[in-house]
Write a protein that binds this DNA or RNA. Sequence first.
DNA 1: TTCAAAAACATCGTATACGAATTAATCGTA
DNA 2: TACGATTAATTCGTATACGATGTTTTTGAA
Lengths: 157, 157
Amino acid sequence: MDQAPNTEDLKQLLCFNIYSLNRAFGRYYQAAFSETGLTYPKFVILMALDAGGPMSVSALSTRAGVESNTLSPLLKKMAEFGALTRQRAEDDERRVEVAITPKGEEMLKRARNVVEQGFQELGLNPKQITDTIEFLEATHARVENAEPPKLSFDGIK
Amino acid sequence: MDQAPNTEDLKQLLCFNIYSLNRAFGRYYQAAFSETGLTYPKFVILMALDAGGPMSVSALSTRAGVESNTLSPLLKKMAEFGALTRQRAEDDERRVEVAITPKGEEMLKRARNVVEQGFQELGLNPKQITDTIEFLEATHARVENAEPPKLSFDGIK
DNA sequence: TTCAAAAACATCGTATACGAATTAATCGTA
DNA sequence: TACGATTAATTCGTATACGATGTTTTTGAA
């Protein structure tokens, strides 16, 4: 009877491990950042914005790997907090230029140190980290380009 | 000036790659399952429930790696859909026994095939998959047990 | 036996996410 | 130069997540 594929066990599914570890990281950073109102997604946005300089919402969306409709409300809150500014581009009124502020840079600097320190404390093997990242990037590219098979429940009563 | 740690680039952060790939998988499965109302988290719940047999909400929470407060509303919807049943345990009225239905089993069977097929089509290296999963599990355990350093924005104007 | 503490779920408030629909501005081309 | 496509951003509806809190039931020690 055990002819089933080894998806039998959740632990053997790559996607489950990714899903599960992602939430663990989420809780970890929520605990690390909680006093400040910063969150992991906001940290990612600040990283991307800082590295690339002032840019449009869609450019930031691409860089941070976050959809623009997810970004919009986050940017609004971060602007209210003073971490960045948003203003319509003069040459094209459709675009909104986003720029990090000195306050945002200071926040990012401190957050980056906390992330770096926490990561060091995990004591992971550097070679394994780089190998894993390389594999995850390649997997990501394939998932992004893949045509998912369609599930159907036709005929289930 | 480039004395900064290599967290400079998002792509070099393990947590970013996990975060990013997780959302890619989410979109992938959303596309695969969309016709049916099934989602990836619900698939995980069905997998865990099917593998372990009828169990309490908290036991399912542990098995699926999902908090019970996340589970409650999901189970409610899945029960309304007919994929599982929920009933108070007779010996302890606090507990809710969850059991998969024949309909749920049929749904899971088909979903499992779709997941398996899609995964095959990604054409990933089996050795790399198992190595990666092993590393991710170890990382997960460390993240779970770690004491996150605390971020502070004291003194930022 | 009582009654505070603990356990098991559910609910609440908030924060992401994403596809789809909307709105406003710009482009292309007939 | 009109005016239908395109583009950029936002808004909307829905679905997770999680910490904190609430409710009900059960336990355990005085």
